[in-house]
C-alpha cells in the first residue's frame, strides 16, 4: 500500500508531462516549439528541485551546469566540416570528433555532474545567504569563461549548426527521465536524510546524517540532470552564452518558487504553468486576439508579468501554488 501511495507522487508529474506532450503533438508546428521548450524547462526545474527543494539551500549556480551541458553536447554534435566556421580556435581534441545525439546527451550529463561535484566539494559547506552568493559566483565564472574560452566552444558566437534533435518526443522523454530520477532520489535513503537536514540540521546530525555529504550527493545528481537538460536545450535552439545566464536563472527559479520548491509536483506544475503564461505572452507580444479582443502587448511584458507573479507568490503564498506538497489522487486519510 505504501508503495502505491508513493507511486502516485510520480504519477501526477509524469501524467502532466505526457499531457503537455500530447497537446503539443496536435497543435500547429509553429506553436509546437513552445511545448518542446516548456518540456526542457521542466527538466531544468526538476533538476533544480532535486537540490534546492530537498536541501533547502538556495543555488543560483545551476544554470552553469546547464551551460556546461549545452557546451559539451553542442561542441560534440556540430558536424566536423562546419566546426572551423563557428569555432575557429577549438582545441584539436574536439575539432575532429562528433558524436551522435544520445552520446552527446550522455556526455553532457556526465560533464554537468563532474562540474557539480568539483564545485560542490568546497561549496557545500555553506548555507543560507553565503551559499546564494557563492553559487551566484559560480554562475558568473562559468559565464565569463565560456564567453572568452574559444578552445572549448564558440565563445561570443552562437551555437549554430547543432542538429535540432530535441523534438517534442525527445524533450518529453528527457523530462520524464529527469522526473523519475528526482522521484527515486527523493524516495531514497539519501533524499530522506537530506530533507531531515533541511528541517533540522542539528537533529539530523544527531541521528548520524552528514549534512555536507548529503548535500554534495544531491548537488552532484542535480548537476547530472542539469547537464542533460542543457544538452537537450542546445539541440532545441541556437544557444549562446547569454541564453544560459541570468535570464534563464531568473525564469527557472521563478518556476520553482511559483510551483512550490519543496515538491517535485510543485516543480513540474510551476515549470508548465509559468511556461504556458510566458509563451502566451510571447505570442501576444507579436499580436493575438482573445475572445474577440485584439491584444498587442509591447516587448518586455513577459518578464514584467512573470516578475510580478513571482513576487506575489513569494509574499502571499511562500510555499508555492502546490503548497510544496506532492501530488495525491486521494487525501492522506482515505
Amino acid at each position: 500500500m505504501r508503495r502505491v501511495v508513493a507511486l502516485q507522487e510520480l504519477l501526477g508529474p509524469a501524467a502532466l508531462v505526457i499531457a503537455a506532450a500530447l497537446v503539443g503533438a496536435i497543435v500547429s508546428t509553429s506553436n509546437q516549439t513552445y511545448f518542446t521548450d516548456a518540456l526542457v524547462k521542466v527538466a531544468i526545474v526538476a533538476a533544480l528541485y532535486l537540490f534546492i527543494g530537498n536541501s533547502g539551500v538556495l543555488s543560483f549556480g545551476h544554470i552553469s551546469f546547464v551551460a556546461v551541458g549545452a557546451w559539451t553536447a553542442g561542441v560534440l554534435s556540430v558536424p566536423v566540416s562546419e566546426k572551423p566556421a563557428i569555432m575557429p580556435n577549438l582545441a584539436h581534441v574536439l575539432r575532429d570528433r562528433t558524436t551522435g545525439n544520445l552520446g552527446s546527451l550522455a556526455l553532457a550529463a556526465l560533464v554537468g555532474g563532474v562540474c557539480a561535484l568539483v564545485v560542490g566539494l568546497p561549496l557545500m559547506r555553506l548555507s543560507g545567504l553565503a551559499a546564494g552568493i557563492a553559487t551566484f559566483g559560480v554562475l558568473e565564472i562559468t559565464h565569463n569563461l565560456l564567453r572568452y574560452e574559444e578552445k572549448v566552444g564558440p565563445g561570443l558566437n552562437t551555437f549554430s549548426s547543432v542538429p535540432e534533435t530535441t523534438t517534442l518526443r525527445q524533450a518529453a522523454l528527457g523530462a520524464l527521465v529527469v522526473i523519475v530520477v528526482a522521484f527515486a532520489y527523493a524516495r531514497s535513503r539519501f533524499g530522506r536524510l537530506l530533507r531531515a537536514t533541511r528541517e533540522d540540521a542539528a537533529a539530523a546530525r544527531a541521528v548520524g546524517a552528514s549534512v555536507y555529504r548529503q548535500r554534495l550527493i544531491a548537488f552532484t545528481i542535480s548537476g547530472v540532470l542539469a547537464g542533460l537538460a542543457g544538452g537537450l536545450y542546445v539541440h532545441l535552439l541556437p544557444v549562446n552564452t547569454e541564453s544560459v545566464y541570468l535570464d534563464l536563472t531568473f525564469i527557472t527559479l521563478a518556476m520553482l518558487v511559483v510551483g512550490g520548491a519543496t515538491s517535485l509536483w510543485g516543480a513540474v506544475v510551476g515549470a508548465l504553468a509559468v511556461s504556458a503564461l510566458d509563451s502566451y505572452l510571447a505570442v501576444a507580444e507579436n499580436g493575438t486576439s482573445l475572445f474577440g479582443w485584439q491584444i498587442d502587448l509591447p516587448a518586455g511584458t513577459r518578464v514584467i508579468v512573470v516578475g510580478i507573479l513571482m513576487a506575489l507568490v513569494l509574499i502571499l503564498r511562500p510555499s508555492g501554488l502546490t503548497g510544496g506538497r506532492e501530488f495525491r489522487l486521494w487525501p492522506r486519510s482515505a
Binding site: L129, A254, L314
Partner: peptide, 26 residues
Amino acid sequence: LRGHSPAVMLVATFAVAFLLQSVALL
C-alpha cells in the same frame, strides 16, 4: 517579506530587479 529567510528575500529582490529592468525596457 520581513521575517522571511534571507534566501527567500534574495530571490524576491532578484525578481524585482528583473521586473524593473523590463519596465525600463518597455
